[in-house]
Design a protein around this nucleic acid. Structure first.
Length: 305
DNA sequence: TTCCAGGACGACA
DNA sequence: TGTCGTCATGGA
């Protein structure tokens, strides 16, 4: 008897493989896995960890994913629970056609969107993303990947299902109990160690409310976030862009975004100028930033193999 | 050696 | 409200 996998149809256009692949750049990533056309991540399902597995069964203009849970096809009841999680994870609410139409008037950038047709950035949980972005402050990506890997190995929680083992990113509770000296031994700077443990402790004692952020406008969310030690404007914007897919969160001080603009337009712009330059993308500057990063990544890959 | 990496903080004027 | 020095590490 043939096994029928439950399938979720997604909003077109969506290039599943490129969208996932672009952002899976580290082989040392422990919280999610992209291999052989399958995306895996541990999620919280009704308060308990579960291993979600997604595989494309559609095409860019008729996208759909097969859904498995803990190594078995999801039941209809499970699929009902998983649907909003999967749509959130893949950024299914983003209407790429509207984005493309909004930037179609500019030939240079329209070329980028044609080249990256169907690409979206998958989203990751807010706390994990915030920590990741703080880790990435001012250091190279390979070094940042290594730091995250060490943090997850030490404080994350392993979950095994269906013959696979993945880690859950350390909860605020776990990191609130972490000693700064342990993070220093992992080559975190003194600042980053105190930023992450400090934010974790404020989450635990309730003085920092991450859940409320998703209900705020992008500007209000940025204002709220930068009130906490360790979160500057870049960190707030990048986190909102990657975790919540906010289309108007533009990290103007991002080295990658800056590189992309320089490579694409020939302008070397500082933060204020780059922020003004992004005005051409209107309320879509956050998605434009994603495309600049993805385009830059693809260009570098072509040159280096 | 210098400069740059997907910056933020604190001091200072 | 802006600028400047400092923090840390690794690679080009």
């Amino acid at each position: 008897m043939k096994i029928v996998f439950p399938v979720l149809s997604l909003r077109a256009p969506y290039d599943f493989a490129r969208s996932i692949g672009f952002w899976q750049r580290s082989t040392g990533e422990l919280c999610e896995q992209w291999a052989d056309g399958v995306y895996r991540r541990v999620i919280a399902l009704e308060g308990a960890p579960a291993l979600l597995m997604l595989r494309s069964v559609g095409a860019v203009d008729s996208p759909a994913v097969a859904v498995e849970l803990n190594g078995a096809p999801a039941t209809p009841d499970e699929l009902n629970l998983l649907e909003p999680i999967v749509r959130q994870l893949l950024g299914d609410d983003l209407d790429l056609h509207s984005f493309y139409a909004a930037v179609a008037g500019e030939p240079v950038f329209a070329g980028v969107t044609q080249q990256l047709y169907g690409v979206k950035a998958p989203r990751s949980p807010l706390w994990e993303t915030l920590c990741w972005v703080i880790i990435g402050q001012q250091i190279s990506l390979p070094f940042a990947y290594m730091l995250k890997q060490r943090l997850v190995e030490r404080y994350g929680e392993r979950f095994e299902a269906g013959g696979r083992a993945l880690d859950q990113f350390p909860s605020p509770e776990r990191l609130a109990d972490a000693e700064a000296s342990d993070l220093l031994a992992m080559q975190f700077s003194r600042n980053k160690a105190s930023f992450i443990t400090g934010l974790a402790r404020q989450l635990v004692d309730g003085s920092f409310d991450l859940d409320s952020v998703s209900r705020l406008s992008t500007d209000a969310a940025i204002s709220y976030l930068i009130g906490f030690r360790g979160i500057g404007r870049w960190t707030a914007e990048f986190t909102l862009m990657r975790a919540l897919g906010r289309p108007d969160a533009f990290p103007a001080n991002d080295a990658g975004v800056r590189q992309g603009v320089t490579a694409l337009y020939g302008h070397k712009l500082a933060e204020p100028e780059l922020r003004a330059f992004a005005g051409r993308w209107g309320g879509w500057s956050g998605i434009a930033a994603i495309y600049l990063l993805a385009w830059l990544r693809e260009m570098k890959t072509k040159h280096h193999g």
